[in-house]
């Protein structure tokens, strides 16, 4: 009994690990960059260690560094966080069904649901003989370990690192392109994929790199709501 439970866990780990390799490349690099940024901003490695572990939302951690360097304003910090991380609401809505019935694992899966983890857990085709809950827990935990270790190492060794890894963070972009394509191949109707690209691109041009996420989300939500009668009844959005 104990043995078979262990077998289930090991099998889930083996299935999950390859999916997280691109994140390993991206997170170690970005995490190092973030840790080094804190290091040169005059913070002990304990800051990137705890911030990467507790906040675990990359772009927000970078912003928090600048918040820590300005006047004390926790309300502003709180409201900025809600704005910048509002995209998590979409991830939650997409995972409502997939996280059902997972008990304690669900709490951790929601806690650790960053962009990359959501994308893998949503899109991965988990083999039938692999436990879904453990698979997603390992994806989440491995990604978190990569991020926290990168940030902590960056905070510890900061400017001592000189390896030429310029451009390795493109792994993340490449991963999202691949996940976008996988979704495209799976869907019969590509309206939503195209809307996501087009509306975000237009919002980026109009609102600029720092302010385009919320307008993009609103635009996506509005148009998908307007198209509901067109997209829903014909079962065009059926997913695998």
């Amino acid at each position: 009994m104990v043995q078979s439970e262990r077998g289930v866990v090991v099998r889930a780990f083996k299935a999950a690990f390859p999916y997280t390799l691109p994140i390993f490349a991206g997170f170690e690099f970005l995490g190092l960059t973030y840790g080094m940024y804190m290091n040169v901003s005059g913070f002990s490695f304990l800051y990137p260690l705890f911030m990467s572990m507790l906040i675990f939302a990359g772009s927000m951690e970078f912003i928090t560094v600048s918040l820590l360097l300005t006047a004390f304003n926790p309300l502003q910090a709180f409201l900025m966080t809600l704005m910048i991380n509002a995209r998590h609401l979409f991830y939650g809505l997409s995972m409502l069904e997939k996280f059902k019935g997972l008990g304690w694992k669900k709490i951790y899966l929601i806690y650790g649901m960053c962009d990359e983890t959501f994308s893998i857990n949503f899109s991965a085709r988990i083999p039938v003989d692999v436990d879904r809950g453990w698979f997603m827990v390992f994806v989440t935990a491995l990604n978190q370990v990569y991020w926290v270790s990168g940030a902590t190492l960056g905070g510890l060794f900061g400017s001592m690192i000189t390896l030429n890894t310029e451009g390795i963070d493109f792994a993340m972009t490449a991963m999202f392109v691949v996940i976008f394509m996988e979704q495209w191949i799976r869907d019969r109707d590509h309206t939503s994929s195209l809307l996501g690209l087009a509306l975000s691109f237009v919002c980026l041009l109009v609102f600029g790199a720092d302010n385009f996420i919320i307008p993009s989300m609103i635009a996506i939500l509005l148009v998908l709501t307007l198209l509901r009668s067109h997209l829903e009844p014909r079962g065009k959005v059926g997913l695998a």
Binding site: F176, F180, S192, S193, G196, L197, S200
Partner: peptide, 10 residues
């Protein structure tokens, strides 16, 4: 939403 979100993330 997910299909659109992946576009947004790219």
């Amino acid at each position: 939403l997910p299909a659109a979100v992946f576009g947004l993330l790219v």
